[in-house]
Design a protein around this nucleic acid. Structure first.
Lengths: 207, 207
DNA sequence: TAGATTGTTAATCGATTAACAATC
DNA sequence: TAGATTGTTAATCGATTAACAATC
């Protein structure tokens, strides 16, 4: 697994692009394309060939000069580096809608993270059951998708657990000494509105 | 609306942080805090006071030296700038789970974007009905949350519409001349796994 | 006035792009 | 060999941080 002692440094922005590489490589492989150049990858990803080469060479030496990259090698290598391979177990606590949406995500359905159990706050005493379960089964990742009061209570529980990370869809910022990834869905629509507004302003000016 | 001819330039990274400011300001106002300093805002946001002042001063002159910022003024001003105020209409097409999750989002429920109609691909001929509706009612924003074949078909329809933007949860990159915001939910979990893996490696090394 | 805190300029840091030698 | 394309170094660009004068 460890190639040549792993001296390279993967920048934050490169790390953020890894899922994108995986998505595209998967499609190429499914379409029986086993070879790809940095230029092609770049255009599929909406990036520059330079950036793709910077990214990939920071991960290791996967390319072959004059040839390009082997999509299958690249795919499995990035999967490795990204650290997604059914290694981690997860439990979801959240509103009915969020739970049913999240448990159907491919990342839980196929390979990826192993989803062990879900607790919908629509059910009686969901948080109590969640606490009992988590204390006993020690999942690696907690997916927090609650709303309102449940959120504060759930965070109290989470703070007592020995976990590896939190995937947070709730409105609240969580202070923990393990990685927390916030996904504020509504934020993304706001930035879309912002872009639309900006475009409209620009077009009005042009006239 | 236009303060002093709007010469300031809002950077991309500042724009991305606007929803975060709104979330925090809302909480402060709900807690009857009507005054806030850049230092306080920064700590709530997980940023530096410098960055907060850079951000806010790029939006306009909202602060008062020696005092701080008026949370209510700041909140409504940023709402304005962010361009979210029930101005835009939206329609959702997607899987049953995504539709029921999305339509319960606060951004659609309260003020924000006006959700006009939803089409679940679990229902017969959802895409046909969507097409008819969208052609007639001309929504501003299409929320695309389909999977599999429906995605390609839905994109075909979208390309024939006169819309202002697309909020895309589907796996597919969309080429359009209006703003598109992609939200690949699974990506975020992958970056969490990456952070967890990195932390574990580091801790192993330290020992 | 004295203390607090902004707005802005300058310095630093990190990420992207350009260019090209290395090499398949 | 000739053509293609990587990996890497250097140059550019943008974003963050530091510092401080302006001013409430």
């Amino acid at each position: 697994m460890n190639r040549e002692n792993e001296t390279r440094k993967v920048s934050k922005s490169t790390a953020k692009r890894l899922p994108g590489y995986l998505r595209i490589l998967k499609k190429l492989i499914d379409g029986n394309e086993f070879r790809v150049s940095s230029t092609r990858l770049a255009s599929l990803l909406g990036a520059s060939p330079s950036q793709v080469r910077q990214d990939l060479s920071s991960l290791g030496e996967f390319g072959l000069r004059g040839y390009g990259y082997d999509t299958r090698v690249l795919y499995t290598s990035i999967l490795d580096i990204a650290g997604v391979r059914e290694e981690y177990s997860a439990v979801i606590v959240g509103t009915e809608e969020m739970v049913s949406m999240l448990k159907s995500r491919p990342v839980f359905v196929g390979q990826g993270v192993a989803l062990k159990k879900c607790f919908s706050t629509a059910k009686e005493n969901a948080l109590g059951l969640f606490e009992d379960y988590a204390k006993k089964e020690r999942p690696d990742i907690i997916v927090l998708a609650t709303e309102g009061d449940s959120t504060e209570k759930a965070i109290e529980v989470i703070k007592t657990l020995k976990i590896k990370g939190v995937w947070n869809f709730s409105n609240v910022k969580i202070k923990l000494d393990v990685p927390v990834k916030n996904l504020w869905i509504d934020d993304s629509l706001m930035t879309l509105c912002y872009d639309i507004g900006k475009k409209e302003t620009k077009e009005r000016k042009t006239k």
